[in-house]
Design a protein around this nucleic acid. Structure first.
Lengths: 221, 221
DNA sequence: CGGACGATGGCAGCTTGCTGCCACCACGTT
DNA sequence: AACGTGGTGGCAGCAAGCTGCCATCGTCCG
């Protein structure tokens, strides 16, 4: 038995000082799980670390970022996302909350941040293969189910107003057009117009396909 | 900074000896992530631990098991699953592989097993809040996306023959009934019969809803 | 004021989807 | 051979969905 390979530090400064070299040593993969691009550390610390990292997109070096939908809120956040993606990082969104920031480097080192608390934040640096491997497997599982952000932007995830969403819900409830239109206070004609628009946005040729797509894109609630 | 709260043990016997009390002390929640119900430890060790645990389903005590699809292979495995569920455990299936077994107790203690290797298996016992919290958040994310096994069994996940699956694919491709029926070498009438049967199985009132359900149940491929 | 514009809704006609009815065929049983 | 059973397919009729056309209404300019 042994008790080692785990290190707890407080505050960004100490993290950079003690674990900065681990970032610089990244060879193959940099994984980051977080709520959004901002919370995991102070801008200064993040910058100091980013400077030490090899550039993403280099041969065999991948950067993966798994974020909560919160990362899509606000225009500034979206811009940041685009920048990160332009640098070669793969970004995915998980529909569940990810309160604890996690970083895994080369599948060998893992850094977990404690909850965002007042005062100095606590970070846990681990190199235990079992721990890192286990967390990495879980990360993979979440990653697989997340929606790819590249597809989100380029494939133009339909931006739905509350209106279209209501139509979607009516469709999902299985009502006939007549029932649904009355329920929404629309004429049959307009309701169908809305459905047609929705299907166009989803690039669906049939209502079945539209349902499928809607599910894929996580518009079911 | 500190380096503690992590313990690595080798072999089931040592795990039971050193961490058995942690199982007995479980108060609220017992989480288990594994490939199936068999691999995480030797039967003897599992039994020894199970005996020390409070019974599932007791007031405020929940048992959650997140497994790979491999856990559904074979009649024996299914029987075991039913037994576990009968005892009150919630079971979900994640479509991704979960090579590293993980146990989280009361959101305070975490046990990670190394890969299944010859010789004594290595277990890592952790109580660091940051580590446990981080892993727990990831677990939740995977759990949310998994399909509930209770629904799978009782709610009778539709058992589809290859035939119905072909219909499903045709529908998903967005073809009209006429095109699809010709493609499958069926008459229009029969094709539509198949679609109707499919919708009955999915308990869908409209094709849109059927598409939604099909997506939910992961029948998209 | 007048006109352009966009959203709506009625109408009509068409396509597609849905299903009851019956006939047919293949197969196994009595 | 006669029979029942289950899967298939044609037909017909209805229900539902789709869309072009036009009239209407409110709003926003010039």
């Amino acid at each position: 038995m042994s008790a080692d390979e785990v290190l707890t530090v407080r505050g960004d400064a100490e993290l950079v000082a003690r674990a900065g070299h681990l970032f610089a040593g990244a060879q193959h993969e940099f994984v980051c799980v977080a709520r959004d691009l901002d919370t995991w550390s102070q801008p200064a610390a993040r910058q100091a670390i980013a400077n030490r990292m090899p550039p993403a997109g280099e041969t065999g070096f991948t950067v993966s970022k798994l974020l909560s939908p919160a990362a899509l809120a606000g225009e500034a956040a979206r811009l940041r996302l685009r920048e990160v993606m332009a640098k070669g990082a793969r970004v995915r969104i998980s529909s569940t909350r990810l309160p604890h920031e996690t970083i895994i480097i080369d599948r060998r080192v893992m850094i977990l941040a404690g909850r965002d608390t007042p005062g100095l934040r606590e970070y846990t640096v681990t190199t235990s293969p079992a721990l890192v491997g286990g967390v990495y497997a879980l990360f993979r599982a979440v990653w697989e189910t997340g929606t790819d952000l590249a597809a989100y932007f380029s494939g133009e995830m339909p931006h739905l107003d509350a209106d279209s969403l209501a139509v979607l819900r009516a469709l999902g409830a299985g009502h006939t057009d007549e029932t649904a239109s009355r329920q929404l206070g629309l004429s049959l004609r307009t309701y169908r117009r809305r459905v047609a628009e929705l299907m166009a946005k989803l690039e669906a040729d049939s209502r079945f396909q539209a349902g499928l797509r809607a599910g894929e894109l996580g518009l079911t609630g």
